[in-house]
Design a protein around this nucleic acid. Structure first.
Lengths: 341, 341
DNA sequence: CTGAAAGCGCTAACAT
DNA sequence: ATGTTAGCGCTTTCAG
């Protein structure tokens, strides 16, 4: 009795053919406004929705883009960075009427089966890859397929891929110059993992800035793993070297570092000036408020989607989008009088 | 020259028919091991992958489940709760070889267009809905469709829906009894938004426990919005009532509350005993470490996926899964001697 | 401006 | 055990 509600059926009810209904649904040309009205009325009253899979099959385009995050361990999601990135990506996909599929590895046992699902034809039109580590085979793998993809971050072999990144190096360099300009002479660094390009870039940018300012870092370097705990531990260790300033490669780690400073009975920015990277933790959540190199995470996500749609549309000359960062000066660096001091 | 790589082509190369290849790919029965070997060899060397959309169309099943989070504002992602939930859901979908599609509203302008995309046929097999507010039309809307769905949380009209929740009420009651058992007599409450069932349940559970212990809360109630800042503000306000204990309806808000206590020059747990809900913030991140009603977020996510697959498979009697919570006693409640005291 | 017809690549009877 | 066939619901020439 109840007929399947498809183009044919809508056409039947509106007294037109399937093709005409298709044109109406897709806003195609060559439909008399009278016919259009009638068809739309039927669609409205029946609640007809085109079948996504059928459409994908016929049009060879799914309207879905994938976001691939390898090594998505729990700690990864504790960092607000990814939430922000997903928000940016999601809002951009909504904007262009696409759907976002999320592929998180590391949780499951067999990631190679997941990746092969990602690149299977007919599931997604393209993918955004992020949070890769250096030498990650994933990117090489992607290049071996015909699946359009863009990388958020800077892959090792960036030359041949489309990618969206922030200028980690310049941002970190700015932090160094800022600290030096404040008269600090014993800078320390809490670096991000050196198996990530962001970690490497922030480290080298900071050292570069230091060199320009005529400062050297000696042994005052520790490496964290992005977690707040690791920042705290790193700072605690570094304190033995009596630094008067520290650049922490991420907000989360900086929160931990602030805590270590406090726990050691020292004062920030009095004893130690702190500058972090990210600009993601709400300023009022820390005391003192963090001076931070702000990266535009949400924009990066939005831009990645736009770039990906271009790649899907056929763009072929690798494009590297690099967003600038901006130093937000607050109290933790000591440039501004501390409220309570 | 280059033929499309589909079942037909694989079959041609292996010298068998399309159906046989299909059987091999899907692990179907009735394939001689010799044939199977030959087909698998061809698949391996060609890198053939079935076309997802074609498969969906023919089998009427997409292998994709959607996660719908309405009102996904930025603050929402600052709470580690959602990251954890997504992790649980993602690991479960990986487990059963399904793909996760993420639908975040609120960011975009027109959410009704998104929701209609969600329930369109042929895109997802089912949907997990969470973070709904009371009276949210979304759930009614879903019930009006034939799309299988489960709710994470407790919808108003839970009776008719499949849902997975934690026992917020019992957990909050336990917190009240714990505080009372510690001899506290002027309890306060920092509640979660009353337009969420979790907020309502935690509030009523706490009041219930208080009543059992013969305590009353009088005016010592404030309501936060899940954010750390709101917890801090709420606590600051509550301090005027001189409470000797407070139950905070979420870890994040509790972190803010701890800060307000510290900023007021008071001591936790000495002056005020604190118990929170969630058990998501790593204990060592706060001083003192939070005593907290732990909810199994990841398990909830995993269970939601399993329940959804059951619904997709045809389950029809609404099932309500309720996970118990567990009180993790640490230092903030004062039950255990404080390390530094 | 509209309809007819040919697939898209796959699954699932059904036949052999 | 394997092949044949008929769709799934849509887009897209191509006629008219």
């Amino acid at each position: 009795m109840t007929r399947p509600l498809n183009l044919e059926e809508v056409g039947r009810r509106a007294g037109v053919s399937r093709s005409t209904v298709s044109r109406v649904v897709n806003g195609g040309p060559n439909v008399s406004s009278e016919t259009k009205r009638r068809v739309e009325a039927v669609i409205a009253e029946t609640g007809y929705r085109p079948h996504a899979a059928a459409r994908s099959l016929a049009s060879n385009s799914t309207g879905v883009i994938g976001l691939v995050i390898p090594s998505a361990v729990a700690t990864l999601f504790d960092d607000p960075y990814f939430g922000r990135l997903i928000l940016g990506i999601s809002s951009a996909t909504n904007e262009v009427d696409m759907t976002l599929a999320l592929f998180l590895f590391g949780a499951g046992p067999d990631e190679s089966s997941i990746i092969s699902r990602v690149v299977a034809p007919g599931l997604v039109d393209g993918v955004i890859v992020t949070a890769t580590t250096r030498g990650d085979p994933l990117i090489d793998h992607m290049q071996g397929t015909s699946m359009p993809f863009v990388v958020v971050g800077r892959p090792d072999n960036a030359g041949s891929t489309f990618c969206v990144d922030v200028d980690n190096r310049a941002g970190a360099r700015t932090a160094a110059l800022h600290l030096a300009g404040l008269g600090r002479r014993r800078p320390a660094l809490i670096a991000a993992p050196s198996n990530t390009t962001a970690g490497v870039d922030r480290r080298s940018g900071f050292l570069e800035g230091l060199a320009e300012a005529g400062l050297s870092i000696e042994d005052r370097i520790a490496e964290g793993d992005w977690s707040q705990e690791s920042g705290r531990d790193a700072m605690a260790r570094l304190l033995a070297e009596r630094p008067d300033a520290v650049f922490v490669a991420s907000d989360r780690m900086a929160v931990g570092a602030l805590r270590a400073i406090r726990e050691a009975g020292l004062h920030c920015p009095g004893d130690i000036s702190v500058v972090s990277f990210d600009g993601i933790v709400p300023p009022d959540l820390t005391a003192p408020r963090l001076t931070s190199v702000v990266q535009p995470v949400t924009e990066v996500g939005e831009r990645a989607v736009r770039l990906l749609t271009a790649v899907i549309a056929g763009a072929s000359t690798p494009e590297h989008v690099v967003f600038p960062t901006e130093l937000a000066v607050r109290e933790s660096c000591g440039a501004t009088p501390t409220a309570g001091a």
